[in-house]
Design a protein around this nucleic acid. Structure first.
Lengths: 205, 205
DNA sequence: GGAAAAATCATGGAAAAAGGGGATATAGGC
DNA sequence: GCCTATATCCCCTTTTTCCATGATTTTTCC
């Protein structure tokens, strides 16, 4: 029986590209596509594919959240993350949320088909490049920050001083200072500049 | 006579998608594709298309630089920028470097064809969304920074202090301070935190 | 060759952040 | 009820950045 494949990606060209790549495959059945998270969920209420190829960026919701939601409602559906970026933080989050694979948009036809077949048979699949990024950055892990720390981090990024942040949050500036020190420690940075750069790269900001 | 179209994009799926979209068009001739800047330039030495669809992100060179280079060598070729991002800074830079149009990767078949036809007849074409972004951000313009300022900016982002940067670049720390002040002024920011955030968002870092 | 832009250097003072100590209160999980 | 994580608060010192104001030398471009 052919593997039922559905795709959720807001980039029309990518959808068209994958459709064109897979349309002549005997053991793959093209189920259609959605261009946003909402219509993806709506489709799943009617029919369930075996595999969803899912972009990590969608207009209404991040693929990371959508992935979690789909896996909660339909645990048997395999999800393969699809992204332009070979960025460890995204890959990690997708896998944490139940994705079975991750391929980059520069993947070849063979790689996509292999990914689909692998996840259907219960395995995990990472693009060659994605896999090596994971290895490289295994130690460069993403810090876990608290709600308050994130709040302070955003205000720092907006250019506010400790005193201004303190006023805004109705707390003492020494408290803000403490949060700031904890942020520096968690991100393993020496000063504001590298803190903001890292936080920005890791999508905290 | 059919319009000769070439595409330079490192994302195989996008190339495949556009090929699939354009292959049945009567007045468009598919010339092929390159997956990086180097092979694009190599191809152009052999043959020149009328239009190049060019990704703004390439492994070896940014589309922004490649665009400039191609226009210098082959002024008659029209270039259409191709990007996932609807980011004003990219669009602006592509247009400054001689691009005739800019379409997002979620564009429809009709939009792409219209873009190609428009630029061939000498016009400019911006995706609907790209155009509105340009209008929105007309005032939020990207600062023009010098080579040295960019160098200093990157070192600041890495967490180095003025003294460390001074040592590294063999200049006085007061000079670094001056560059720093100019950066703050150009980005219209009050401190390092917002400078780095903005520079990061605008892809300087 | 001359104008403009970029890069260099400087002084002095105010403001802010970084680094190193602590301490208390409170909520949630086991 | 105890432990841990989180959030709150404080002091002191040193380092770094920010601000104002100025000037000289090199590059770049027309």
């Amino acid at each position: 029986m052919a593997i039922k494949v559905f795709i959720t990606d807001d980039h029309y060209m990518v959808v068209e590209g994958i459709r064109s790549l897979l349309q002549h495959e005997q053991n793959i059945e093209w189920m259609g596509h959605a261009t946003n998270a909402t219509s993806c969920l709506a489709y799943l209420q009617q029919e369930q594919p075996d595999v969803i190829l899912m972009d990590i960026n969608m207009p209404d919701k991040s693929g990371i959240d959508l992935c979690k939601e789909v896996k909660e409602k339909y645990p048997s559906i395999r999800i393969i993350g699809l992204s332009t970026f070979n960025q460890q933080s995204f890959i990690q989050k997708m896998m944490d949320n139940g994705a079975s694979g991750y391929v980059l948009k520069n993947a070849t036809k063979e790689e996509i088909i292999e990914a689909i077949e692998t996840v259907v048979s219960g395995g995990k699949f990472l693009s060659l490049e994605a896999a090596s990024t994971m290895r490289e950055n295994r130690n460069a892990n993403i810090p876990i920050i608290t709600r308050r720390e994130k709040e302070v981090l955003l205000l720092i990024a907006e250019g506010m001083t400790n005193n201004e942040i303190a006023e805004k949050l109705f707390i003492s500036s020494t408290t803000v200072d403490t949060h700031r020190k904890n942020l520096l420690a968690k991100f393993d940075t020496r000063n504001t500049a590298s803190l903001i750069r890292l936080a920005s790269q890791m999508q905290f900001i």
